[in-house]
């Protein structure tokens, strides 16, 4: 059992939890994730680690309420317990001095992006950050991003704040030289970033979110095609070379259970009512 020690409502649908998990807090690195389960009947869901405090023994996660499990998670409060919290899983991102790094994060994953940015800064990189969201309401952690970046750009899908969409990135790439790009956010955003950096041959690391079950390499639910070879994202990733990922396949696989997930929600609300 893992106790929730802090909860912050970031937007109407996005929440941050600080969870007591002392061993994981000592170990987890940017890029790694946790698999959690709320109750005996619950699903195992993966969530990226967005920060750790080894001294306090806590781990931070930031998540969007999209379906049954994430909504249940959002209902928990300080002092409540999460039944299972297996972390860290997956491989850490490669932190070193690349030179100038472009970091692109979207939606709830900006939390995870900042965890990465802190480490990249410490390694001596110059950091240019792009933070995106659907609309201005969903932009999170702007102040932290401002503080931690040498340059910050903001983008929203609807243009309600900052640039509209990611078209402006083309100009930025024309203007400046980047040694490496890290991106974490919706799969479609990561795909777009990879497509934009491809002509410039800037190494681009993406963080993939295929459906996972065990997340320890035992089921293959998370398989993705990278450079023509099948990889298990939970043990071979979740970070990969964005220029080599077969995004069509990934997106199609991520949608496979959507009809079932809807049933779960409907059933759930009948139960509650």
């Amino acid at each position: 059992m893992y106790r929730i020690v802090e909860k912050i409502k970031l937007t109407p649908t996005d929440k941050m939890l600080v969870i007591e998990a002392p061993e994981a807090a000592r170990k987890a690195k940017p890029g790694q994730f946790a698999v959690l389960r709320i109750s005996e009947k619950g699903e195992r869901i993966p969530i990226t680690i967005a920060g750790v405090d080894p001294d306090k023994g806590t781990v931070v996660i930031v998540f969007a309420e999209v379906g049954k499990t994430s909504k249940d998670l959002g209902k928990l409060g300080v002092g409540d317990y999460i039944l299972n919290f297996a972390a860290p899983l997956g491989n850490p991102l490669n932190i070193k001095n690349y030179g100038t790094v472009l970091c692109v994060g979207g939606g709830v994953f900006v939390g995870a992006l900042l965890f990465l940015i802190k480490a990249l800064r410490q390694a001596g990189n110059e950091i240019v950050t792009i933070i995106g969201a659907r609309n201005s309401e969903h932009l999170i952690f702007l102040d932290d991003a401002e503080k931690l970046s040498d340059e910050l750009y903001i983008s929203t899908d609807d243009g309600s704040r900052g640039y509209k969409g990611l078209e402006f990135l083309k100009e930025l790439l024309n203007k400046r030289k980047f040694d490496h790009v890290f991106t974490i956010g919706s799969t479609s955003m990561q795909r777009l970033v990879s497509e934009l950096t491809h002509p410039y041959s800037i190494p681009t690391t993406v963080n993939l979110f295929p459906i996972m079950v065990d997340a320890t390499g035992m089921c293959g639910a998370c398989r993705v095609i990278v450079g023509g070879a099948t990889k298990f994202a939970c043990v071979d990733g979740p970070d990969f070379d964005g220029h080599k990922v077969d995004f069509d396949q990934l997106i199609s696989r991520m949608r496979f259970y959507n009809p079932q997930e809807k049933i779960a929600m409907v059933y759930h609300y009948k139960e509650v009512a």
């Binding site: 009947k41 619950g42 079950v213 065990d214 079932q260 997930e261 049933i263 059933y267 759930h268």
Partner: peptide, 17 residues
């Protein structure tokens, strides 16, 4: 794993489909 460990045969009473 879905069927046994996660009890998907009891979906939607259990969450895993």
């Amino acid at each position: 794993i879905r069927t046994n460990l996660m009890k998907a045969y009891l979906f939607p009473r259990y969450d895993t489909p």
